[in-house]
C-alpha cells in the first residue's frame, strides 16, 4: 500500500494494521525517516518537500512491485509526506511484512534505498541564510546500486535511465 500525504501518521497504528488479520506474517521490518535540525554545519528551521504527484504514485508503485518480485512478501507499506516539516517530524515510513525476517529486513532496506533515488521528491531547507535545495548524494546512488545485483528476482539498474 502506498500513501502520499501532507499529514503525519501514527507509527504504532500503521504497523499494527500492516499485519493485522494476516497470520502468515512472521516478521515486520520498518524504517522511519525524520527531519534533522542540522545539515552539515548549518542549522535547519524547517524543510519543504515538493513532489510530482502523478509520477510519485507511479514510481512508488513500481518500487513496491519490484520488491514483491524479489522477496516473498505478505504486505508492503510506503508512506511519504510532502509540504512543510520541522525538525523531529516524520518524513517517510516504509515497512515490509513476510513469513520470515530475512525477506522483511532486506525488502525494507531495498524499499528505502530505491525510494531515495527513484521517487520524485525534492527538499528545500530553510536555514538562517535562506532557502537551499538539498543536493542528491552520490552515497544514495551507491546504496541503491547495491540492489542491482542483490536480492531475488529480476535485476534492474535503478540508474539505467541516466
Amino acid at each position: 500500500m502506498i500513501k502520499v500525504q501532507a499529514e503525519d501518521f501514527d507509527v504504532g497504528r500503521e504497523l499494527e494494521n500492516l499485519s493485522s488479520g494476516n497470520l502468515g506474517v512472521g516478521g515486520v521490518s520498518c524504517f522511519i525517516g525524520l527531519v534533522r535540525d542540522m545539515a552539515g554545519d548549518e542549522s535547519i528551521q524547517a524543510m519543504t518537500l515538493e513532489h510530482y504527484p502523478e509520477m510519485t504514485e507511479k514510481a512508488l508503485a513500481k518500487i513496491e512491485a519490484e520488491a514483491r518480485t524479489r522477496w516473498p512478501l505478505e504486505e508492503i507499506l510506503i508512506i511519504h509526506r510532502y509540504g512543510r516539516l520541522e525538525p523531529g517530524d516524520r518524513i517517510v515510513f516504509v515497512a515490509a511484512a513476510s513469513a520470515h525476517r530475512e525477506a522483511a529486513i532486506e525488502a525494507c532496506h531495498f524499499l528505502i534505498d530505491w525510494l531515495k533515488t527513484q521517487a520524485p521528491f525534492w527538499k528545500l531547507e530553510e536555514t538562517p541564510d535562506g532557502g537551499q535545495w538539498v543536493d542528491a548524494r552520490s552515497s544514495d546512488d551507491k546504496a541503491a546500486g547495491r540492489w542491482v545485483t542483490a536480492g531475488r528476482g529480476a535485476e534492474k539498474d535503478p540508474d539505467a535511465a541516466e
Partner: peptide, 12 residues
C-alpha cells in the same frame, strides 16, 4: 507527451 524537468531527486 508530458515532459518533466527536475534536479536529481532527494526524497526519503
Amino acid at each position: 507527451d508530458e515532459v518533466a524537468f527536475f534536479p536529481p531527486v532527494t526524497g526519503g
